Amino acid sequence: MDFHCHLDLYPRAREVYKEALHRNEFTWLVTTSPKAFEATSRVLGNSPKVLVTPGLHPEIAHERAAELELLLKQIAIAPAVGEVGLDGSPRFKHSYEIQRHIFQSVIRRCSEVGGRALSIHSRGAVKDVLAILQKHPGFGTAILHWFSGTPAELRAAEAFGCWFSVGPAMFESASGRALAMKMAREKIVPESDGPFAKVAGATVMPWSTHDTAERLASLWGVRSDEAVATLARNSHQLLRLMGRS
């Protein structure tokens, strides 16, 4: 399974899509803008094994802010939302207030329509992400993708009930491994974040769950098959929360 993948942005996306259908039980295809969601839904079609969701990536919030109203309309008919969130890194500080407006609007809308599962970007902005979520009870289920906050922020996110999607590229850094080690095992699901994520220069593919499981097994000190079983159990639990099983 893959709970965060930009499948539409791979080179030869149609071929990767077909391969994901063959290899994966479930793939969450997150989009970067409302118009990208429309185009991807139209071009790649619909399958019960691939969930395509509307989003507005914080890195392009300043370029696509005019699409917010379209996103709010899409949220009303979509079962989940992603990729959305905040990026407080120096590179995107210039658009932070626009990001905040968009993310608050999205979370408010999710609460209004009965709650949605959200794949959330939180680089350099975990405290603000959690604060916005807390202001809107009933927003749904938060899955923090490629979490990179502090240990204290991790504890706060866990206390709030967040899930975490983790992929092979997260283990390339010591800080990523340390955070993965500290995460509650029952709240971790696999992701690829392809085609952006890379390991040893190679693009991570949507069918990377076993790689993630092996890396977690090494951290946890368990056999690979035990880590595989844990991720499968978590994934099915999250899919139930998302109304997908």
Rank of each mutant, 00 (worst) to 15 (best):
M205I: 01
W220N: 01
S165K: 07
S208C: 15
A169E: 04
S192F: 12
A174K: 13
W207E: 11
F171K: 05
S192T: 13
P195S: 03
G194E: 05
A178D: 14
S175W: 12
A174E: 15
A180K: 02
V166K: 05
W207Y: 14
A180C: 15
P206L: 11
S208Q: 10
S173C: 08
L179W: 00
S165Y: 10
A202T: 12
G167M: 11
S175M: 00
D225G: 01
I188F: 04
H210Q: 14
V204P: 01
S208K: 04
W207R: 09
A227C: 06
R177S: 14
R223M: 10
P168V: 08
G176H: 05
A174G: 12
L179A: 01
T203Y: 03
S218P: 00
H210E: 15
E172Y: 02
K198Y: 02
S224T: 13
A174S: 13
S224V: 13
M170L: 15
A180L: 10
M183S: 02
S165Q: 04
G167Y: 01
V228Y: 00
L219F: 08
L179M: 14
I188C: 04
S165A: 13
L216G: 00
G176S: 07
D193Y: 12
V204W: 01
I188D: 01
A184T: 11
F196C: 02
D225R: 15
E214D: 08
A200G: 03
A184F: 04
A217T: 04
A217S: 07
A197L: 09
P195N: 04
G221C: 06
V199Q: 12
T212I: 04
H210F: 14
D193E: 10
L216V: 05
G194S: 03
M170W: 08
E186R: 14
W207F: 14
A174Y: 02
M170V: 15
M170K: 13
V222W: 02
R185K: 15
E226K: 11
T212Y: 00
R215Q: 12
T209D: 12
A180N: 03
R223G: 07
M170I: 15
E226C: 03
F171G: 06
A200T: 07
S173D: 11
P206Q: 10
R215I: 07
V222C: 12
S165E: 03
A178V: 08
D225V: 13
S192Q: 10
G201S: 07
P195A: 05
E186M: 08
H210Y: 14
A169I: 01
E214F: 00
P206I: 12
A169S: 14
S218V: 12
G194H: 05
V166E: 07
A200Y: 06
S165L: 06
W220S: 07
H210T: 15
E191H: 11
P206V: 09
A202D: 11
A213R: 00
H210P: 00
D211G: 03
A178H: 10
P190E: 10
L179K: 00
G176D: 08
A217Q: 02
I188L: 10
L179T: 05
S192G: 11
R177Y: 03
V166D: 09
D211N: 11
A174R: 14
T212A: 12
P190W: 06
V204D: 03
M170C: 12
A169G: 03
V189L: 08
M170E: 14
P190H: 03
R185S: 09
A197Q: 08
